Amino acid sequence: MKEDNILTVDGLCVSYGKFNAVQNVSFSVRRGEIFGLLGPNGAGKTSTLSAVEGLLKPQGGTIIVDGNDAVAKPLHARASLGVQLQSTSFQTELYVIEVLRLYAGIYGVPMSKNDLLGILREINLEDQATKKFGQLSGGQQQRVSLVIATIHNPKLVLLDEPTTGLDPQSRRQLWERIDAIRDKGHAVLITTHSMEEAESVCDRIAIIDHGRVIAIDTPQAMVDKHRNDPEVIAVSRRGRVTLEDVFIALTGKAVRG
């Protein structure tokens, strides 16, 4: 029987000197699932994601990507990953179609000009093919970035706050593209500060704070479980308990740096 989890993180520990950024974090992401990692600034989200990406070596625990140990077999694990960072660093002076061609080549994916134009047509950017990447709007750049992250058909896509700074229309479009990735049977691990995004997109979420996972469930189940907690009732507004209320009650009202 095929393993249902495309990603398994077990007892992950990440330290920077004497500071323990991630402490015994465990969670899994299933095939065909969008899994959200939520937490205040400095909670350990980025360190966890960086360890999964292979950008830093954890001090403890295991990360299994599609059956491969990310520490023992990093190249095998990375072959199953697609990554979209919060801020893109693509060559701004290249034309959009050249950026796609470049990264298709890096991933070893043969694509003709018609193939590339077909991809741009799917994301409604065919008419921007000969425009420089740096001239695209933020939403357009994010659409191209997501295409590049998935151009090699990875089994797990990592998205680091992908809709930050986007207007509502661009954000909804990107949500639809993320849904489409999941509907094709791929898995998505997304970090976000947006409770609306977590509720609208994620099948399950984990809340991480001070380097530890403090809750894992579906967004609605998490709200239902905590809606009568005194701490949640105290922070809720207008009598309707939301995921944001639960998040604040669990992680505290203090603004993080």
Rank of each mutant, 00 (worst) to 15 (best):
D4T: 12
C13R: 08
S15L: 08
S15W: 06
Y16S: 12
F19T: 15
A21G: 04
F27I: 06
S28P: 05
V29G: 00
R31C: 09
R31I: 14
E33H: 15
G36R: 01
L37P: 01
L49Q: 02
L56F: 10
P58A: 07
Q59F: 07
G60R: 07
I63G: 00
D66N: 13
D66G: 04
K73P: 12
P74Q: 11
H76M: 09
A77M: 09
R78F: 07
R78G: 05
G82T: 03
Q84V: 15
Q91R: 10
Y95P: 11
I97F: 03
L100D: 05
G108Q: 07
G108A: 15
M111N: 06
N114R: 14
G118Y: 05
L120Q: 03
R121C: 13
A129P: 02
G134D: 13
S137L: 09
G139H: 02
Q142F: 13
R143Q: 09
V144C: 01
V144R: 00
A149N: 13
I151W: 01
E161A: 08
T164L: 15
L166N: 08
Q169A: 13
S170Y: 01
R171N: 13
L174D: 03
E176S: 15
R177G: 09
D179H: 09
A180R: 05
I181N: 00
R182D: 03
R182G: 02
R182W: 10
D183G: 15
G185K: 08
I190R: 00
T191A: 03
M195L: 11
E197W: 02
A198L: 00
A198W: 00
E199M: 14
S200I: 09
D203K: 08
R204W: 10
D209K: 12
G211S: 02
G211C: 02
A215M: 10
P219M: 03
A221Y: 04
V223F: 04
D224G: 06
D224H: 03
H226Y: 11
N228W: 11
A234P: 08
V235A: 02
R237P: 14
R238P: 15
R240C: 14
T242I: 11
T242R: 07
L243F: 11
D245L: 02
I248N: 01
V255L: 09
V255T: 15
R256H: 05
G257K: 11
